[in-house]
Amino acid sequence: HNLTITQGKLFFHYNPKLCLSEIHKMEEVSGTKGRQERNDIALKTNGDQASCENELLKFSYIRTSFDKILLRWEPYWPPDFRDLLGFMLFYKEAPYQNVTEFDGQDACGSNSWTVVDIDPPLRSNDPKSQNHPGWLMRGLKPWTQYAIFVKTLVTFSDERRTYGAKSDIIYVQTDATNPSVPLDPISVSNSSSQIILKWKPPSDPNGNITHYLVFWERQAEDSELFELDYCLKGLKLPSRTWSPPFESEDSQKHNQSEYEDSAGECCSCPKTDSQILKELEESSFRKTFEDYLHNVVFVPRKTSSGTGAEDPRPSRKRRSLGDVGNVTVAVPTVAAFPNTSSTSVPTSPEEHRPFEKVVNKESLVISGLRHFTGYRIELQACNQDTPEERCSVAAYVSARTMPEAKADDIVGPVTHEIFENNVVHLMWQEPKEPNGLIVLYEVSYRRYGDEELHLCVSRKHFALERGCRLRGLSPGNYSVRIRATSLAGNGSWTEPTYFYVTDYLDVPSNIA
């Protein structure tokens, strides 16, 4: 807008934040220059609390790290170098490059900038070799853009010569660093050979998330399962459950009422301010606690030095998902009996873990797994792929695949051998790939016309006998059925096997 004052003059007093240069501009645009008398524009009460600059400061050096910015700028000295009290560095987070010096300023003089007072450097006698002032900004957020400017702080001049310097606002972004852990990993099994893994992005990506790394490792069953005799009275049979499938998407929606109208769909109840505040506090606490764990609990591995020492970490090797089922080394339970199943799973520490690289999504279907087997899954978020990966501390989750139908069934015939004193040795093959492992066998036998009897055969007993022995049988026709019990439950009964026990007292003698 054009402003013209045809008559009258300007009068400025007691404006401590208004620089004289701005008042002189007002004289020019209003056409009143030359009308004012000496005392109409006070030299001592206008701009006496402001830094009124008329020179431009330029930054000469900028260096960044993930949490620091090192700045240096060209030296500046007023005509009387004693008038320079120091520099004021202003900075704040700036997602967009549209910041002005006066953003967030209120009537009390406060604003949204963080201000650092910096002492002037030592003055050199040689004007050509003056030290460049600077400042190291610490405690910054990774991968965050900051708006920065600097200006001088000078003393009051009796001659009211307006001098000083100020830089333009520059924008500097800190470097990326390792992201925080992925949030809320959930693993479920939808079949006997697959596990579905879902997660949420890290709360602090500290860069642009480029991919996720998912490692999985087959877990050995508890050692007590191999040692305890679950045929003993009072000892509860062990059981394991597989990871249940995901709930429906509708039930997972946030901010939804727990109660549904019987007449149909209901609208979600909005969260109160107290609920939102509580969630923010919980989120802040979780982030602080995660940072504490990362800094205190997890110790970084030592990389190899120039002395030739090897990095103890196993090298990563990509495998196809079809090879995942046989990740671990199978060892027989008892070496003397080769027909026992290889369900003991000690994992070799030198073995390469299978892994998958996930790009542009937060889910993965891990296939080719062994049925009813526990897996430990390790999830890392990465925001750099080359020249070397920059990934987060791992988040861990466990899951067990679903049982395989008929995996616990005894394959092959049940054979028998009759000894003296009416002892019958029953023999059968253990299931080759049971659900988890076989903890015991149930032997059901009966003599024709009598009630059915049951015998429990422990895992250890089966390994020693290759089956079991029935003792003290009365003469007669017998039928026997056997079924295995694994961590997933009972298998199917075998087809009945028949044998006849004679009275050993009636056996004919070869003595003449």
Rank of each mutant, 00 (worst) to 15 (best):
K302E: 13
T401E: 07
S479T: 15
S223Q: 10
Y445M: 10
L455Y: 11
V331S: 12
Y292H: 05
E430S: 15
A405D: 08
H425S: 14
S284G: 10
D450V: 06
L437E: 06
D503Q: 15
L235V: 09
R400K: 05
V296A: 13
R466S: 12
K317T: 08
L473M: 08
D408P: 00
K406Q: 12
P312F: 08
R400H: 13
H425Y: 09
E362N: 07
E388C: 14
F499D: 00
T373I: 13
P245K: 12
P413H: 15
N255V: 05
T340A: 07
A309S: 13
P431E: 00
Y259L: 04
S274W: 10
P475Q: 11
R390Y: 02
P496Y: 09
E465T: 11
L369T: 05
G207D: 02
E442G: 07
A407Q: 15
D311F: 15
R390A: 04
R390P: 09
I410P: 05
H211Q: 06
P475K: 08
G489A: 08
T401A: 03
H416I: 07
S239Y: 14
M427W: 07
T347F: 06
S223R: 10
N208V: 07
R353Y: 12
E495R: 07
S367W: 12
R481H: 03
I410R: 02
N490H: 00
P332T: 06
R353E: 06
I366L: 12
P270G: 02
N422E: 15
R447I: 07
L379K: 00
L487H: 00
E310S: 13
K432W: 10
D506I: 10
C382R: 00
L228F: 12
K278S: 15
I418Q: 08
K287L: 05
E258S: 10
S315A: 06
S458R: 07
K357R: 08
M427H: 03
E224V: 15
Q219M: 07
L232A: 10
G489H: 14
S305M: 08
L237D: 12
R376L: 08
L470T: 02
S509Q: 07
I377C: 09
D311Y: 15
S305A: 11
Y478A: 00
S479H: 03
V424M: 05
H461C: 10
G207H: 02
V501W: 02
K302N: 09
S458W: 07
P244C: 08
P332V: 05
S367K: 03
I377D: 00
E247D: 05
E217T: 13
P475T: 10
F289Q: 05
P354E: 09
V297Y: 12
Y441C: 02
S474C: 09
V414T: 03
E260L: 10
A309K: 13
N435M: 00
H416M: 09
R376Q: 03
E451P: 11
L228P: 08
S262Y: 11
G467M: 04
I366Q: 01
D450K: 03
A405S: 08
S248L: 04
Y445A: 13
V331I: 15
N477C: 09
L487V: 05
F226P: 08
D229V: 05
Q275R: 06
L228K: 09
G325R: 04
P387L: 09
R313G: 03
D273F: 14
T494V: 02
N206A: 14
V397L: 14
D408K: 00
K278E: 08
R316G: 04
R459L: 07
S341A: 05
G449I: 06
L470E: 00
T303V: 06
E249V: 12
L379R: 00
V501A: 04
L235W: 13
D204A: 15
R481K: 14
F355T: 09
G467P: 01
E265H: 11
N208D: 03
N421A: 10
H371K: 03
V331M: 08
M427R: 09
S257D: 06
P403G: 03
P434D: 00
K271C: 14
E279Q: 06
S486A: 07
E356A: 13
L237M: 09
V296I: 06
A336V: 08
D409Q: 05
G308R: 11
Y504F: 07
P431V: 05
R376E: 04
E310Y: 15
